[in-house]
Design a protein around this nucleic acid. Sequence first.
DNA 1: TGAAACCCCATTGACGCCCATAAATACCCA
DNA 2: TGGGTATTTATGGGCGTCAATGGGGTTTCA
Lengths: 152, 152
Amino acid sequence: MALFLSTFVNKVDRKGRVSVPAPFRAQLVGQTFNGIVAFRSYRQPAIEACGIDRMTNLSESLDELDQFSEAQDDLASTIFADAHQLQFDSEGRVMLPQLLVEHANVTDAAAFIGRGATFQIWEPEAFRAHQETARNRTRDQGATLRLKPRER
Amino acid sequence: MALFLSTFVNKVDRKGRVSVPAPFRAQLVGQTFNGIVAFRSYRQPAIEACGIDRMTNLSESLDELDQFSEAQDDLASTIFADAHQLQFDSEGRVMLPQLLVEHANVTDAAAFIGRGATFQIWEPEAFRAHQETARNRTRDQGATLRLKPRER
DNA sequence: TGAAACCCCATTGACGCCCATAAATACCCA
DNA sequence: TGGGTATTTATGGGCGTCAATGGGGTTTCA
């Protein structure tokens, strides 16, 4: 499974293109679509992104909910309708659609934030501020994470 | 399996034709019918659509309901009787039947909404409003979707 | 024979593809 | 270990192709 780590800040050129960091691209080779899938975060001014395989998996999970139910509909409208397939050009760049750019307030630079199985794209300064408050909250509340036992 | 993602808004010309987005068409190549299947959504002012293969699949699922049951009969009437096969012209456009156009209030533009295994066609502004409420509901209820464990 | 549907062609604008450059990193060898 | 070289990555820009759109002509069925 893909694993996205670390933070990279790249420029957005005047054509709206931005290089996806090479380490992230390396996590996506061999998937059925050569690029990323991106959609608006519904909690933050950020773009959520992952590989196509994760979306396929999501689609299959969604199919197991009742067809035509309200929950099924909301998720479909929120996630799939809003997802953009951004194909890599030969240099590993993607074009960020207008809608996503506006949502995340990205202008001339974009921060790629590894989050494990997915990653996010932020306006760099906005992310710095967000990270600061998240760190403080974590320290104050002492959040912990229990490791999943590894099956053999 | 076909995977429809993202939203595309295309114009309906004065002949009633509308281009099906190229990425959606790409998901349908190789199916037994070169076009889409469309029917009225019974919850929303929208047109439900998919490839012919999914209809075949739905038909088989329907077969597993009790024959002659009310539910089976209702679904058959609602979906199959109402389904239209819309063939692509040489440019990848389809003609939307009068009945569907009226149901979805589509006039001079149509929004194609990816929903994973299927897609919908909406009047663009109506969908924007619908998506807005769906997003809010999803966020407020913290609706989540548990990923299907990936089989190995 | 008229309306509707299909086929073919033209336009244009966006996007994908290619090449060029520069900087940073990795690699190699003395 | 240091310097030098090769490779990869990020970035910029030009150009060709394809998708979306509009229109005209022709066939088909009622």
